[in-house]
Computed example of a mutant assay.
Amino acid sequence: MLPDLPTAAWVLLAAGAAVVGISKTALPGASTLSIAAFAAVLPARQSTGTLLALLIVGDVFALWAYRRHADWGALVRLVPAVIAGVLLGVAFLALADDDAVRRVIGVTLLLLIAFTLWRRRTSAPERPHGGRVLYGTLGGFTTMVANAGGPVMSMYFLAARFPVKTFLGTAAWFFAIVNIAKLPFSISLGLLTPSGLLLDLVLIPAVLVGAFGGRLIAERLDQAVFEAMVIVLTVIGAAYLLV
């Protein structure tokens, strides 16, 4: 059965679903705003599973738009660290409460932003092994516990200085693969419920509107503006998680 929610809650969920679409086809860091919207309306654990299903719908449209632009070398090199991070996230979800999870992720994001900006000011673009392990592990961990891997991996792809479409294509394949891999864990942990899936069916049109709108935005985004917006949205997401 659909949850009995006031009109304002439905509007907030629809807006969050639209932002899912935008985040997949234009502004990856915006996904944390969707996390905030869903967590404000639904119980914390249910919001995570419900949002995951919508993120997978968004992944389909991101792949449709940018499937040819991925840097597969970067993706393959991330695999071991991401797997480790996802497994750590599964263990952490079984032990930690929601407040602890949110604060750990928020602090981590702020530290990653500072680290990424520092690297860009002091060194040439590169993808060192240590950075790959750090970002990959944290990306896998944060996406498992709170669907918050978008800002973490945005910082990694930003540090690699990918052009806009390569950034979006690499992110599209990364999250499509990771989110599908997370699905069995989310079901077994009770995060994705029948009522959550029914809610997702109602919200899918909003994801589609956001995805098509994001595609139009991305075609007009200047590289410098794109990078600045990714950083700003990541800071906003980190601040929300800390509040």
Score class of each variant (00 low, 15 high):
residue 1 M to I: 01
residue 2 L to Q: 11
residue 5 L to E: 12
residue 9 A to N: 14
residue 11 V to C: 01
residue 13 L to T: 06
residue 14 A to T: 03
residue 15 A to E: 06
residue 16 G to Y: 02
residue 16 G to F: 05
residue 16 G to R: 07
residue 18 A to Q: 08
residue 20 V to Y: 06
residue 21 G to I: 02
residue 22 I to K: 10
residue 24 K to Q: 09
residue 24 K to E: 07
residue 29 G to Q: 06
residue 31 S to V: 07
residue 34 S to F: 07
residue 34 S to Y: 04
residue 35 I to N: 15
residue 36 A to G: 07
residue 37 A to I: 09
residue 38 F to D: 08
residue 38 F to Q: 12
residue 39 A to L: 12
residue 39 A to Q: 13
residue 40 A to N: 10
residue 42 L to W: 15
residue 43 P to E: 11
residue 45 R to L: 13
residue 48 T to E: 10
residue 49 G to Q: 13
residue 51 L to I: 03
residue 52 L to D: 10
residue 53 A to G: 14
residue 56 I to M: 14
residue 58 G to R: 03
residue 58 G to V: 01
residue 59 D to H: 15
residue 61 F to I: 07
residue 62 A to F: 01
residue 69 H to I: 07
residue 71 D to F: 14
residue 73 G to F: 00
residue 74 A to I: 02
residue 74 A to P: 00
residue 74 A to K: 02
residue 75 L to E: 08
residue 76 V to T: 14
residue 85 G to P: 04
residue 87 L to Q: 15
residue 88 L to W: 11
residue 88 L to G: 12
residue 89 G to V: 11
residue 89 G to Q: 10
residue 91 A to Y: 02
residue 94 A to Y: 02
residue 94 A to H: 01
residue 96 A to G: 11
residue 97 D to H: 07
residue 97 D to C: 05
residue 98 D to S: 15
residue 103 R to H: 15
residue 104 V to F: 10
residue 106 G to H: 09
residue 107 V to L: 04
residue 109 L to Q: 09
residue 109 L to N: 08
residue 112 L to A: 06
residue 117 L to A: 14
residue 118 W to Y: 13
residue 119 R to F: 04
residue 122 T to L: 03
residue 124 A to M: 04
residue 124 A to G: 10
residue 125 P to G: 09
residue 128 P to I: 00
residue 129 H to I: 09
residue 132 R to N: 05
residue 135 Y to Q: 01
residue 135 Y to C: 02
residue 135 Y to E: 00
residue 137 T to D: 01
residue 138 L to N: 05
residue 138 L to C: 09
residue 139 G to D: 05
residue 141 F to D: 11
residue 141 F to M: 06
residue 141 F to R: 02
residue 143 T to N: 14
residue 144 M to F: 05
residue 144 M to I: 07
residue 147 N to L: 01
residue 149 G to F: 11
residue 150 G to N: 12
residue 153 M to V: 11
residue 156 Y to P: 00
residue 157 F to W: 01
residue 157 F to Y: 11
residue 158 L to V: 10
residue 161 R to V: 07
residue 162 F to C: 05
residue 163 P to K: 06
residue 164 V to W: 00
residue 164 V to I: 14
residue 168 L to S: 09
residue 170 T to G: 00
residue 176 A to E: 00
residue 177 I to P: 03
residue 179 N to Q: 11
residue 182 K to F: 02
residue 183 L to W: 04
residue 183 L to K: 03
residue 184 P to L: 12
residue 185 F to K: 08
residue 185 F to L: 11
residue 186 S to N: 15
residue 190 G to N: 09
residue 190 G to E: 03
residue 191 L to E: 07
residue 196 G to L: 04
residue 197 L to E: 05
residue 200 D to S: 14
residue 200 D to T: 13
residue 202 V to Q: 10
residue 202 V to D: 06
residue 205 P to A: 14
residue 207 V to Q: 06
residue 210 G to M: 06
residue 213 G to T: 04
residue 214 G to I: 01
residue 214 G to W: 03
residue 215 R to D: 00
residue 215 R to C: 04
residue 215 R to P: 01
residue 219 E to H: 12
residue 220 R to Q: 13
residue 220 R to D: 08
residue 225 V to N: 08
residue 228 A to S: 10
residue 230 V to E: 11
residue 230 V to N: 12
residue 231 I to Q: 14
residue 232 V to E: 15
residue 235 V to I: 15
residue 235 V to G: 11
residue 238 A to S: 13
residue 238 A to G: 09
residue 239 A to F: 10
residue 240 Y to A: 04
residue 240 Y to G: 08
residue 242 L to E: 12
